[in-house]
Computed example of a mutant assay.
Amino acid sequence: MVDPGHGGDDGGAKGTKGLKEKAAALEIGRAVAAKLQAAGFEPLFTREDDTFIPLWDRAKAANAQGADLFISLHLNAARAKAARGSEVYFLSLGQGDDDEVAATENAGAGAAPGAEDSVVASILDDLAQKAFLQDSERLAVAIQGQLNRLAGIKERGVKQAPFVVLRGAAMPAVLVEVAFISNPKEEEKLKDAAFRAKVADAITLGVRRYFAQANGGVRRRMVGGPSLGRP
């Protein structure tokens, strides 16, 4: 499941030259889906146009489709314009490595639907992701390594944070901050289809390496449909 972040009234972060995170994330999502399909995967989308999808509904859609992986795509922002490169996160159920980034991406999510009525539902959401935390970390490491090469950065490091969009995903799930939209040079790169294709290649190679290391052990099968997974 490819999840382009933000959308609709939620524009996300904005670059100094006007690029909106929601638009860049969608274009990157399309490029990632095309590369994944070429590699033999069956990509699905949480959104394919400028539509707002509530954060809590995104993992729910991945669960309903029986997706093997959940990859949420975003653009980072920092006060220091020199900040560059990619960061890949997996879920923290407590305090994370960068709660400021998580707070920005979680803005407007509100409480989980029905949370006030069902403590059990909340516990089940936590258990769903706990079962896949190690696989999520392996996926994050595999993708981060490829994106570091693309950016020419030795290591930014995989991190954990309490992202709402990853909660309740019953599969390995990561959030990719592809680049810093606050960095004018990276903002320009994000407008370039060739650069977005390189990002998509890096993410796809990370996914392929993850499945090769997992030996297919985390594959799930759609109810009444074909299996998603590695070629």
Score class of each variant (00 low, 15 high):
140 A>M: 03
70 F>M: 00
100 E>P: 04
70 F>L: 03
148 N>H: 09
102 A>Q: 11
150 L>Q: 01
123 I>K: 08
68 D>S: 13
137 E>C: 09
111 A>C: 04
141 V>R: 06
99 D>E: 08
128 A>P: 02
156 R>D: 08
149 R>T: 05
73 L>N: 02
128 A>K: 13
121 A>E: 11
72 S>Q: 01
154 K>S: 13
142 A>I: 09
149 R>N: 10
135 D>S: 15
122 S>D: 06
73 L>W: 08
102 A>Y: 08
107 A>S: 07
81 K>I: 07
113 P>C: 08
95 Q>F: 01
85 G>N: 02
113 P>Y: 07
92 S>P: 01
84 R>E: 14
109 A>M: 10
81 K>H: 08
127 L>R: 10
100 E>S: 13
62 A>H: 00
79 R>C: 03
110 G>N: 04
69 L>W: 00
133 L>P: 06
71 I>H: 01
103 A>S: 12
116 E>L: 12
59 A>E: 00
151 A>E: 09
97 D>K: 04
78 A>M: 06
140 A>G: 10
122 S>K: 12
145 G>N: 05
104 T>K: 15
154 K>N: 07
88 V>W: 04
136 S>I: 04
118 S>M: 08
120 V>D: 05
141 V>S: 11
130 K>P: 02
62 A>C: 04
102 A>F: 04
139 L>E: 01
89 Y>D: 05
109 A>L: 01
121 A>S: 12
131 A>L: 13
108 G>A: 02
114 G>K: 10
83 A>M: 13
158 V>S: 07
125 D>R: 14
101 V>S: 15
76 N>W: 07
129 Q>W: 01
142 A>H: 05
99 D>K: 07
62 A>Q: 00
121 A>I: 10
145 G>W: 03
126 D>P: 04
64 A>E: 15
67 A>P: 04
141 V>K: 14
100 E>T: 14
154 K>C: 03
130 K>H: 07
60 K>N: 12
83 A>G: 06
123 I>G: 09
102 A>C: 03
106 N>L: 10
